[in-house]
Design a protein around this nucleic acid. Structure first.
Lengths: 111, 111
DNA sequence: CTTCAGGTACGATGCAAGTCATACCTGAAG
DNA sequence: CTTCAGGTATGACTTGCATCGTACCTGAAG
């Protein structure tokens, strides 16, 4: 079984401060941007993101994202899955995920 | 005369990272939330925000907001004016200012 | 001129956060 | 069983940043 093993806040309890602090970090924002670009919201492995940091630090960053309520972490024991909480984010902060696609000045919309 | 004496980045050069880092701070976000709530975008004095911090720290925060491209600071010599760069922000990151009004869970739109 | 309030510049301090090293746990594959 | 890869826990280090103290600048009012 693999539900929301590692839990974050409920959709209505998402805190804007925590969310913005989470997105303020470059690496975490890169993860979120990738997740937001995938409209299928497929579950992804932790190492499918090409982060130039140690795995301990990655663990830290994913924890911050989860505690901010931005992702779910599914624990499989010796493996972990990441899934974007798109619906909850859109409900609480509509348009936020779209902004993550506006990184490049001039070429915004990912579609 | 009083144009954009203290300058920030151009509208197209607004950096999402800098913007999010600026908004991650509670005091700076409070300022931005107040500014975003005023649809008239009237110029405001620096001390019209009731910030519980020293004036040196306020100077620091306003500088961060300006360098992120979120506000203009108009220097009058011994006084200073603050104005929201609403149009530039909306052009580069549409919907961002609206999100600032979604602080309270359940009662979002300030209108 | 002097006085005073608003702001800035510089420096110091204290705390939060990002990073990694070491050690350990978990489950799958030999 | 052992081995190995993925992930976590703990602790230490270091950087960044919010904060303030002191000193100085600016313009208006007396």
């Amino acid at each position: 079984m693999a539900g929301r093993n590692l839990v974050g806040p409920e959709a209505d309890a998402l805190d804007l401060g925590a969310v913005l602090r989470a997105l303020a970090d470059e690496h975490r924002r890169a993860v979120m941007t990738e997740l937001a670009a995938d409209r299928g919201d497929s579950e992804r492995g932790c190492n499918s993101f090409d982060l130039p940091i140690s795995k301990q630090t990655q663990t830290h960053h994913f924890r911050v994202l989860r505690e901010a309520g931005l992702i779910d972490e599914i624990d499989y024991g010796n493996r972990k899955g990441i899934r974007l909480r798109r619906a909850d984010i859109e409900k609480r902060f509509p348009g936020l995920l779209t902004l993550l696609g506006a990184e490049s000045p001039g070429g915004p919309a990912p579609r």
